[in-house]
């Protein structure tokens, strides 16, 4: 989907074309789930959050001023919806809990250490990791979803991986 096509879809959605909105939602679904996942640390909850966020986005799309920034705007709504969910459940999701949630996916010790290292990252960094590795987003897709350049993403990811690597040095084989 080219930038022009996307802007046209956004414009159509603003003018009342629900199907255009659906196409946009489909395009950014994985990225939005990754963003929500980085906050809430649970894939299924993240999917619920994104579905709710899409509802909010649909109602508020008339207020979107810059059509080029649709993805970044949608990302912000998802992030806030995820934070709201964390708040509403009255839990800040401490690191230990996250590790338990993730343990369901794999009980491998190294994976657990990696997840622990990720949960110790800054929220912005964690979001970048999820965007990159959840559903294997390309740098282009990430740049669109975050509204920053590919070069910036590349630089940040390198630093983040270094941080994770340093934390994993205790574990053999890395």
């Amino acid at each position: 989907m080219t930038e022009k096509t996307e802007i046209r879809l956004v414009q159509n959605a603003v003018n009342g074309d629900l199907e255009s909105f659906g196409l946009l939602c489909e395009k950014y679904y994985a990225a939005m789930v990754a963003i929500a996942c980085s906050v809430i640390a649970d894939k299924h909850l993240a999917e619920d959050v994104v579905q709710t966020a899409y509802g909010k986005a649909l109602v508020g799309i008339g207020g979107l001023k810059d059509k080029k920034l649709f993805a970044a705007w949608l990302g912000r709504i998802c992030r806030n919806a995820a934070k709201d969910m964390v708040r509403s459940r009255n839990r800040d999701i401490p690191t230990e809990d996250l590790s338990q949630v993730k343990a369901a996916v794999s009980d491998n010790e190294t994976s657990e250490a990696v997840r622990d290292a990720i949960e110790h990252l800054e929220p912005v960094e964690r979001e970048l990791v999820y965007l990159r590795y959840f559903n294997d987003q390309s740098y282009e897709q990430m740049a669109e979803a975050l509204g920053i350049s590919k070069a910036a993403i590349n630089g940040r990811l390198k630093r983040i991986k270094q941080k994770i690597g340093n934390r994993l040095k205790d574990f053999a084989g890395i």
Partner: peptide
């Protein structure tokens, strides 16, 4: 290797 490990830890599909 680190890429693979991170992918295993947080990877998924939606």
């Amino acid at each position: 290797k680190l890429d693979g490990l991170i992918h295993d830890a947080v990877g998924g599909e939606s």
